[in-house]
């Protein structure tokens, strides 16, 4: 299987590997995929008071394309608002990394990871709002 230069670059020099404190209210965590299917992505975003993603980290169990897809989206989401980040499409990821058809599912997973992280963040905010409202 021939990998594109961009996939190889992200695989060999992954950006933003690591973890954020998942209990921090400003952190949204997305965990998608399944070990039995051969890929699991964990994407975390840290959102500032203005709703802008100031940091992102990932950890991925999977092939080179899965690692590259998640590494790439950590770069892309930084500096975006959570709503902007949610508009990132898997096709953009696949195109940027020149993924072959058998690897498109990696880009789908990365898109899902963003959405899951954003949803987690928003759920926490909603909970906080409710708590604040209740107080």
């Amino acid at each position: 299987m021939a990998y594109s230069d961009k996939v190889i670059d992200h695989y060999e020099h992954p950006r933003n590997v690591g973890s954020l404190d998942k209990n921090d209210d400003s952190v949204g965590t997305g965990l998608v995929g399944a070990p039995a299917c051969g890929d699991v992505m964990k994407l975390q975003i840290k959102v500032d008071a203005e709703g802008i993603i100031e940091d992102a980290k990932f950890k991925t169990f999977g092939c080179g394309s899965a690692i590259a897809s998640s590494s790439l989206v950590t770069e892309w989401v930084k500096g975006k608002s959570v709503d902007e980040a949610s508009t990132i499409k898997n096709t953009e990821i696949a195109e940027h990394l020149a993924l072959p058809p058998v690897k498109i599912h990696c880009s789908v997973l990365a898109e899902d990871a963003i959405k899951a992280a954003v949803a987690d963040y928003k759920a926490k905010r909603d909970d906080d709002d409710k708590i604040e409202a209740a107080e």
Partner: peptide
């Protein structure tokens, strides 16, 4: 364990 084979092959 915890390292996917195809990803490992690439490395």
């Amino acid at each position: 364990a915890y390292v996917e084979g195809e990803g490992l092959m690439m490395g």
